[in-house]
Design a protein around this nucleic acid. Structure first.
Length: 451
DNA sequence: GTTAGGG
DNA sequence: CCCTAAC
């Protein structure tokens, strides 16, 4: 409801789509409807161009589409016989809607863990049960729009109550339909919905940047806009990750939109998006992923399951400088000490070397020793191939080391081949000269300290 | 907790 | 130097 008492009257259907109040953007009802519909549907199109979408509001996407771990639910109801949303929006929004649709479908394809088919179908099942449709949801008598692309993407699952209001004439009063989908991994739906919002309204969206709101309940933007139409469809729409709620209510007096807070996109999404945008590849496959390399649910997980640590994007933007805050250059004495330690204890006993030789150097961890040794091996290995340059003190770090130290490193390298820096002359050996067993990867197996 | 390996 | 999986 507008509080100023001056309802806006918008005549063009496309303009009805959004009104800016309080800096927020109100999605048009039909867009909402489209969104809802397509979240419930299975991508079918083989190849959908999303040119308009990807370029459209790109920044907004990156900034605003920040949703992870979102479970998602719709809660929308409508009044039937009111002429539906079609009467409100007419055909004007179809183009935009298609773009939104395409974007959504691409999202579907991009995200790893989406189980579009199964989950959607199950969702639709629930949906049907809740609202007691006389027919199966997907079989409802939806009349597709004139645009052929709709067929490509998803004409089947269009919500009849919203976009095809005439087809649900059997429902005479508003029904509240709740579709709860908590099984979604990585909150695909939430992401999609969010994406959709900003895909759709990115160009006009001037609302405050809603990024980085992970895990918190959403801010609710109240946005009003007035429909010129007499009918009063009611669409409310809940995005919930623990009750994140958005609702759009369209009444005669106006529309109430409570816009969810947006989450940052997943890391994968960002990578995918940037990859596609940089390579100029804007056509993403939608539908059955025949050769898609990213089908995580079917990939056998090797080894210990990774912890799912929600990584925030700004964590990735740490500079290399920030990452190496405590860098301390290795001195020649330290290197010699390390070489001595390795000669004495062997490769791999980094804690021993640390305790015995670097006890006073608290800043040198066993991992540091290991890394340094790895670098020394790498350098000395390269040194072998570029002897001249090294002797001329041109390129490598090893150049700063005395020849004797370099020779010792190389000698130790042959004795204790480090994985992946193994010397060719030792590649066939299965035992080191100390008799330390080497596993199939060339790794020294741990041996007793009494050795 | 330690180590390997990748970044 | 940091991170993480594997052990």
């Amino acid at each position: 409801m507008r509080t100023d008492g001056k309802p806006l009257v918008i005549k063009k259907p496309t303009d009805v789509k959004r009104q800016r109040v309080d800096g927020s953007i109100v999605p048009g009802l039909e867009d909402e409807a489209t969104e809802v519909e397509h979240l419930l549907e299975e991508p079918q199109s083989e190849h959908i161009s999303v040119d308009g979408v990807l370029c459209f509001g790109k920044e907004s996407i990156e900034k605003h589409l920040k949703m992870e771990d979102f479970s998602f639910a719709f809660d929308y109801g409508w009044k039937v016989g009111c002429g539906g949303l079609d009467s409100i929006h007419g055909q004007g929004g179809d183009d935009l809607k298609l773009e939104v649709l395409d974007g959504l479908l691409d999202e579907v394809d991009e995200v790893d863990d989406i189980h579009a088919t199964n989950d959607f179908s199950s969702t639709c099942e629930d949906f049907l049960l809740d609202i007691e449709f006389p027919e199966k949801f997907s079989e409802l008598d939806y009349v597709p729009r004139e645009v052929s692309n709709f067929h490509n993407s998803s004409s089947e699952s269009h919500s009849p109550g919203i976009s095809g209001s005439n087809s649900v004439g059997g429902i005479s009063e508003s029904s509240i339909v709740t579709v709860q989908e908590s099984n979604y991994k990585n909150g695909v739906l939430g992401k999609m919905a969010n994406c959709d919002l900003h895909h759709t309204f990115g160009s006009k969206c001037s609302c405050p940047d809603p990024v980085m709101e992970t895990g918190r309940p959403s801010i609710q933007h109240d946005v009003d806009f007035v429909e010129s139409d007499d009918e009063k469809p009611l669409v409310s729409f809940i995005l919930s990750n623990k009750k994140v709620k958005s609702s759009v209510k369209v009444t005669k007096g106006g529309t109430h939109l409570r816009q969810k807070r947006v989450r940052k996109p997943t890391r994968r999404y960002i990578e995918e998006f940037s990859r596609n945008s940089t390579t100029g590849k804007k056509c993403l496959k939608v539908g059955p992923k025949e050769d898609s390399p990213q089908v995580p649910e079917t990939q056998p997980q090797r080894g210990r399951p990774r912890k799912i640590v929600p990584k925030l994007e700004f964590e990735r933007s740490k500079t290399a400088c920030d990452r190496r805050k405590h860098q301390r250059m290795w001195t020649l004495a330290e290197v010699i000490k390390l070489v001595d330690g390795i000669a004495q204890y062997g490769v791999g006993r980094w804690t021993d070397i640390k305790k015995l030789l670097f006890a006073s150097s608290s800043y040198r961890t066993p991992v540091d020793l290991r890394d340094k040794w790895r670098n020394l091996l790498r350098s000395s290995s390269a040194h072998k191939h570029n002897m001249r340059e090294v002797e001329d003190n041109t390129e490598l770090n090893v150049r700063l080391l005395p020849k004797t130290v370099v020779c010792r490193i190389r000698e130790l390298a042959t004795i204790h081949p480090y994985p992946k820096v193994r010397n060719s002359n030792l590649s066939s050996k299965q035992l080191t000269t100390e008799g330390a067993p080497v596993n199939s990867h060339g790794r020294n197996l741990r041996w007793k300290k009494s050795n």
